[in-house]
Each structure stands twice: as structure tokens, then as C-alpha cells.
């Protein structure tokens, strides 16, 4: 009997996550300088996490006909780069918590954390070079090109979001938000692992652009749900500070919707609150923002929006994967749109 989809997702995340962690430990070798580089570099990867990205990479590789060992270096590389991005994101966002513990820069200071983030990026490149032994020069080069593409899209998306905060942008629309998360989130969370999985599994004989609509809708639903959990989630399970996005002045879909629904007076207040540096934004002001969002119906709006995008992802899955035979890995990928909405 086939596993229920929620069980299947949890099972594959556990299975492929464990394989990735094992290989990750090999790459995260200890050396000198230990205290200011290698130990803090291993900190975030060892805090746990769902290993969603490497699991998608491995599942896509297998669904397209490859083996786990052919994808493992790319999966490890992705997880290291993800952790590098997290270290730098936490500095840029001035976040206090990551996976339930103080952020790296809160523990070690910004200069050390910045360098650790750089180190994790460099470590993330090493497995891509090691791909050469298993995949040969052509495929390993193609994976490298995809990694370059993903990194560029991600930093462009991050720049757009940081720019909004820097400019205290208040006149954004939903399409602006979707374009930003397409670059910031969808590429490295969904599209890149899917694309390299198809690349490896089909030996560069699959039209990768067929995956873009599915990857975009799934990644967008994932990001909106993540933003919702930041506002309404369970603090213990979420691992980051609740309402942290409001403290950081992030322009989430809910924030954009609430601004659109507001009159001049409320927009003025919001503009003043969001225009302050983070450390000057009080808890009372953040509480007011949260209530203002509720009153604007923005939480419900975000939830409905995420459901719609997840539905579109399900719809697009069929055309993206029509040439892929049924397998446990294919069913895992198909179950992800539902899973992103169910996760707490």
C-alpha cells in the first residue's frame, strides 16, 4: 500500500536528510583556526533543519533516473550554501534566533560571522568540484553553471528586498513581491535542486525550463507560508523569533496587502514605524502592526493566496513531470505543495 503523502514526505526528508548530514560531516572537517572558523561554521548545519533542499535534489535525481550517490555532492553543496546564506541573512536582518538558538553573529559578533558565512560558501563549492569524479566533466560543469545561476538569482532577490527596506517602500503590489521571492526563495529552495536533479538523472537531456512553473508556484507558496508562520506560528516549533519579520520591517505579502487596505492615517503610522532602525522599533509598535494586519484581513488573505499558489503548483506538476515514471521520489515531489501548507 502506498504511504500517505504526509508520511512519505516526512520519511524521505528523514532518509535523504540523514544521508546528506553524513556526507556534510565529512566536508565540515575540523581544522585551524577552529574557534573562529570551523566550529562556528559547523554550528548552523548541526542545529538540525528539515534538509528540504538536499532532499528535493536527491529525490529529483532519482525520479529522473539517477542514483543518490550521483546527487549527494550537489545536495551537500546546496546545504552548505544555504547555511552560508542564512548566516549572512541573519546579519542583514539583525535576527536574534535561528533554529531555536542565538544567531551566529549574536554569539560570535558580526565580523566573525561574516567570515564564517564566506567560509561556508567556499566549502559549498568543494563538493561541486568533487562532482567531477562521479559525473564526469560535462555534467559537473553543467551543475556548476546552475549553481552560479542560482547564486546570482538569490543575491538579486535579496538585494530587491533589502532595497525596499532601505527605501522604506510603502507602495508595493503583490506582483513586486512575487518577482522578489521568485529570485530570493524559489530559485535556491526549489528550482535549483529540481533542475540539477533532472540534469543529473537525465544526463543533460531534459528541458529544464519545463520545471519553472511548478518550482515557482511551490516556492512562492512555501515562502508565504513561512511568512505566515512568522506571524502566527508556534514559537517552539518555528525556531525563529515570532513576528521577527515585523521587527525587521520585511515587506511580506501580508504587509503589502495591509498597506493597500489602509487609509492615509494608518499608512503614515506604518511608514514611520517601518522607517525606524530595527533597534528603535518597540514591542508596542510591533504589536500594533500585528493587530493592524489582523484588522485588514491580511493574515487570511495570505493564507488564501498560499493555498491558491499551492494548487497551481499541483496543477503544474503534471505537465512538468509527465515524462517521469511513477516512483516514490516522484510522489514525494508531488506531495510537496500540500506539505508546505500543512507544516507548522
Amino acid at each position: 500500500m502506498a504511504e500517505p503523502s504526509s508520511v512519505l514526505v516526512a520519511s524521505i526528508l528523514g532518509e535523504y536528510g540523514a544521508a546528506t548530514r553524513k556526507e556534510l560531516e565529512r566536508v565540515l572537517e575540523s581544522g585551524e583556526p577552529r574557534r573562529h572558523l570551523y566550529e562556528p561554521a559547523a554550528d548552523y548545519p548541526r542545529r538540525g533543519g528539515r534538509m528540504l533542499r538536499p532532499s528535493i535534489c536527491i529525490a529529483a535525481t532519482r525520479a529522473f533516473g539517477g542514483r543518490m550517490d550521483e546527487a549527494i555532492h550537489s545536495a551537500v553543496s546546496l546545504e552548505l550554501m544555504h547555511n552560508a546564506f542564512l548566516v549572512h541573512d541573519d546579519i542583514e536582518d539583525e535576527s536574534d534566533l535561528r533554529r531555536g538558538e542565538p544567531t551566529l553573529h549574536a554569539k560570535h559578533g558580526v565580523p566573525v560571522a561574516l567570515n564564517v558565512g564566506d567560509g561556508l560558501l567556499v566549502m559549498g563549492l568543494t563538493p561541486l568540484v568533487e562532482n567531477q569524479r562521479r559525473l564526469g566533466p560535462h555534467l559537473s560543469m553543467r551543475v556548476f553553471e546552475e549553481a552560479l545561476r542560482m547564486a546570482r538569482e538569490s543575491v538579486e532577490g535579496q538585494a530587491i528586498e533589502l532595497g525596499w527596506r532601505e527605501d522604506n517602500a510603502l507602495d508595493l503590489v503583490e506582483a513586486d513581491y512575487l518577482e522578489m521571492i521568485l529570485k530570493k526563495t524559489c530559485w535556491y529552495t526549489i528550482l535549483y535542486p529540481l533542475r540539477i536533479g533532472a540534469l543529473i538523472g537525465r544526463r543533460d537531456r531534459f528541458e529544464l525550463d519545463r520545471l519553472i512553473r511548478f518550482g515557482f508556484f511551490l516556492g512562492a507558496a512555501f515562502q508565504i507560508q513561512d511568512d505566515l508562520l512568522n506571524l502566527i506560528g508556534d514559537a517552539d516549533r518555528y525556531g525563529k523569533e515570532l513576528a521577527g519579520d515585523l521587527f525587521e520591517g520585511k515587506r511580506t505579502l501580508m504587509m503589502i496587502h495591509a498597506l493597500q487596505q489602509s487609509g492615509t492615517a494608518d499608512r503614515k503610522i506604518v511608514g514611520e514605524v517601518l522607517g525606524k532602525p530595527r533597534e528603535e522599533r518597540s514591542e508596542g509598535e510591533v504589536r500594533w502592526l500585528r493587530q493592524w494586519m489582523d484588522a485588514s484581513g491580511s493574515i487570511e488573505y495570505g493564507r488564501e493566496f498560499a493555498h491558491g499558489l499551492a494548487g497551481a503548483a499541483l496543477h503544474e506538476f503534471e505537465s512538468a513531470f509527465e515524462a517521469v515514471p511513477d516512483s516514490r521520489d516522484r510522489r514525494f515531489l508531488e506531495a510537496l505543495p500540500t506539505w508546505v501548507l500543512e507544516r507548522a
Binding site: 503583490e174 506582483a175 512575487l178 518577482e179 521568485l182 525550463d209 519553472i212 512553473r213 515557482f216 508556484f217 512562492a220 488573505y301 488564501e304 493566496f305 493555498h307 491558491g308 499558489l309 494548487g311 497551481a312
Partner: peptide, 23 residues
């Protein structure tokens, strides 16, 4: 709700199709 969701999905398609067209 269906109208709002439909609008959101339509917007999503517009964004991704424009992106594909750029490519």
C-alpha cells in the same frame, strides 16, 4: 475567497510568464 485565490493565481501566472518571456 475563490475570487481572491483566483486573482492570486492569475497574478502568479502573469509574473512567471513575464519572467519566461524575458528569458
Amino acid at each position: 475567497a475563490a475570487d481572491r485565490i483566483g486573482t492570486g493565481v492569475g497574478l502568479g501566472y502573469r509574473v512567471i510568464e513575464e519572467y519566461i518571456q524575458l528569458g
